[in-house]
Amino acid sequence: MNFLIILLITALLQIVAPWWVVAIVPFLVFLIRQTNASNAFWTGFAAIALLWMAYGFYLHFLSDGAMSDRIAGIFSLPNGIVLLLISALVGGLTGGLAGLSGLLVRRIFISAPPRGISL
């Protein structure tokens, strides 16, 4: 469920917001919703990486690869597909670390009651 929430809200916000909204959405989702650390990172990573890769491939095939191949040439990459994979990795790491950060901030402010203490 967290995956779909991150994917859909980020896709809608990317239309009007700057690129760094990919860090805000996973952070807020895992600030609100409880999960474990591994799940928070990998869910944020997968949602943002999939979103950026899908949109990148859409633009790549829309322009017959002309735009992504030219940008890849600027960075001395062999072709546009490698550029899309690297951008998906960067976006995924941003989303994953933001999701993990949201969970850790949640743990700071919403802590579990101490165990073993009974009155």
Rank of each mutant, 00 (worst) to 15 (best):
Arg33Lys: 12
Ala37Glu: 13
Ala37Met: 08
Asn39Val: 13
Ala40Gly: 11
Ala40Tyr: 05
Ala40Val: 08
Phe41Gly: 01
Phe41Pro: 00
Phe41Thr: 05
Gly44Met: 03
Gly44Cys: 04
Gly44Leu: 00
Phe45Gln: 05
Ala46Asn: 13
Ala46Phe: 10
Ala46Pro: 08
Ala47Glu: 01
Ile48Cys: 10
Ala49Asn: 00
Ala49Pro: 00
Leu51Val: 11
Leu51Ser: 14
Trp52Arg: 02
Trp52Lys: 07
Trp52Gly: 02
Trp52Met: 06
Met53Thr: 12
Ala54Cys: 08
Ala54Pro: 03
Tyr55Met: 15
Gly56Gln: 10
Phe57Lys: 05
Tyr58Gly: 01
His60Ser: 03
Phe61Gln: 12
Asp64Gly: 02
Asp64Lys: 07
Asp64Phe: 09
Asp64Ile: 00
Gly65Phe: 07
Ala66Lys: 11
Arg70Lys: 15
Ile71Phe: 14
Ala72Thr: 08
Gly73Trp: 12
Gly73Tyr: 13
Ile74Met: 15
Phe75Val: 07
Ser76Trp: 14
Leu77Pro: 13
Leu77Thr: 11
Pro78His: 11
Pro78Phe: 14
Leu83Ile: 12
Leu83Lys: 08
Leu85Ile: 07
Leu85Gly: 01
Ile86Gly: 07
Ile86Glu: 13
Ser87Pro: 03
Ser87Ile: 12
Ser87Cys: 09
Ala88Glu: 04
Val90Gln: 06
Gly92Phe: 03
Leu93Gln: 07
Thr94Cys: 04
Gly95Ser: 04
Gly96Met: 03
Leu97Gly: 01
Gly99Ser: 06
Leu100Gly: 02
Leu100His: 04
Leu100Asp: 00
Ser101Arg: 05
Gly102Gln: 12
Leu103Ile: 11
Leu103Asp: 06
Leu104Thr: 09
Leu104Pro: 01
Ile108Trp: 13
Ile108Phe: 05
Phe109Ala: 14
Ile110Lys: 15
